[in-house]
Design a protein around this nucleic acid. Structure first.
Length: 405
RNA sequence: GCGUCGGUGGCGGAGUGGUCAAUCGCACUUGACUGUAAAUCAAGCGCCUUCGGGCUACGCAGGUUCGAAUCCUGCCCGGCGCACCA
């Protein structure tokens, strides 16, 4: 049982283990309790399915009784991770961080029990040690790395090649992140493959200051196998937020490319690998990807919203998209009698502008559910009695006229 | 500091006096189709419009011109090269 769990830790969603899988396996089998951590960026409270992979893995360590730490990168956030080129430095107030952290706990709390009394999860803030780091110490840390090694890094190399700015302080970023491992007395860090460089910097520093081996597990990123694009990207807004309401979360999972189904099962759910193998086989043998993707969507919604909500989301999806029925619950807006439908929708911010409304109507994308027709007149003013409108496939609005002033 | 190149829509990236609200790719929206909000195909993608057009936009501020994203001046920001380097 224990061995099985260890095997899963060492393989599922794992890209690479440094220094080696065998070395980590040996330590895990020895029964030694490790200090394992994952870093989070507190600049926003946005956590998506891609992040969840790391926490699911962290959970596995937690279940084996290892000490689990969530590191809040409140100090490094003010520098801006060079891995993310939109390096707008954000000045975070303590309040922002706290708020984001609370939201984070709510979302990831569904994966790991943060309030487990038997094995409490530690939350640490790197400003505690980084904000007070003096230049002497920083110089000492920096002396562990050569400039050559820094500029070898592809984000840096690419930016130099493209003539994009590259600031000196960006070199500090991996150093600081690496020093976190020292301050935490970490034995193991988990992060996406995009964090490899930063996490490896920590290995060097831990060896230097603590004279021990820090293990690093990089986890696979969800990618579109066709384009190689990251499936979950904060900047592209393609990720599936863990804050999504059940119907939305379900639908967004359904919108993922068919080719990613198996990987999502592996990385975003706790469905046993044996079952995942079954699913893989089923797909290979011509199983309907839609049905299998529905299982996936169901599993994911279940994780974050519970069984009831998963059922409801599934039902909603089937009704709305498979059978194209009108949902029971829809957004309602109240408007004075006689107002143009388009104006009402714009002022309710359901549509960004009148031009957009015009395009939607001209493109045949607006339907009057009350009588089953497609609205073709942009100046339609059917606001005398309640009107149900469908815009595109997934926006439903009920317009309620009120004669009140 | 000097020289030089550049700053364009959500992003990447064309355009270098008029036909530019700005080629194209990505993202996004809508439609068709379907097995799904997949894939594929089609259309759209600044704002307003009585559909004639109007308005605001190409780092910022001025200027030249009948007319500027495109030319000039100044400023701000960046790349590269040179210089400086106790």
């Amino acid at each position: 049982m224990q061995d099985e769990k260890i095997d899963e830790i060492l393989s599922r969603s794992v890209d690479t283990i440094y220094p080696s899988k065998e070395a980590l396996k040996e330590v895990l089998l020895s029964g030694k309790k490790l200090r394992v951590y994952v870093g989070i960026d507190p600049t926003s409270d946005y956590v998506h399915l891609g992040h969840s992979t790391n926490y699911i893995l962290l959970k596995r360590f937690h279940e084996l009784g290892h000490t689990v730490i969530v590191l809040v990168g409140d100090f490094t956030a003010t520098i801006g991770d060079p891995s993310d080129k939109s390096a707008v430095r954000i000045q975070l107030t303590e309040d922002d961080v706290r708020k984001n952290l609370e939201t984070f706990k709510e979302q990831i709390g569904k994966v790991i029990d943060f309030y487990d009394e038997k094995n409490p999860v530690e939350f640490r803030f790197n400003s505690d040690w980084l904000a007070v780091l003096d230049l002497k110490k920083l110089t000492d840390i920096a002396s562990s790395f050569t400039v050559q090694r820094m500029i070898e890094r592809d984000v840096f190399r690419r930016r130099m090649k493209e003539g994009k700015p590259l600031y000196v302080h960006e070199f500090f970023y991996p150093l600081m992140q690496g020093y976190d491992s020292v301050a935490l007395d970490a034995d193991l860090e988990i992060g996406g493959t995009d964090q490899t460089f930063n996490m490896l910097a920590g290995r060097d520093l831990v060896k230097k200051y603590l004279n021990k081996e820090k293990f690093v597990i990089t986890t696979t990123l969800l990618e579109n196998p066709k384009t190689g694009e990251k499936l979950m990207s904060k900047s592209l807004d393609t990720g599936i937020s863990l804050k999504s309401v059940p119907e939305d979360m379900y639908g967004r999972v359904m919108a993922l490319p068919d080719e990613t189904i198996v990987q999502c099962f592996i990385d975003c759910t706790t469905v046993p690998m044996a079952d995942v193998e079954e699913i893989k086989k089923e797909l290979a043998e011509g199983g309907n990807p839609r049905d299998i993707k529905m299982q996936l969507a169901r599993n994911i919604v279940l994780m974050y919203h519970g069984e009831d909500m998963a059922n409801k989301a599934e039902e909603y999806f089937i009704k709305t998209f498979s059978r194209k029925e009108t949902p029971e619950h829809m957004q309602e807006i109240r408007v004075p009698v006689g107002v143009l439908v388009g104006d009402a929708l714009v002022s309710a911010k359901i549509i960004p502008s009148k031009s957009e409304w015009r395009r939607l109507v001209e493109g045949g994308g607006v339907h009057n559910l009350s009588n089953g027709s497609t609205i073709t007149d942009i100046n339609t003013a059917e606001t005398k009695k309640p009107l149900e409108i469908k815009i595109g496939k997934r926006t439903f609005v009920r317009i309620l006229p009120s004669d009140g002033k």
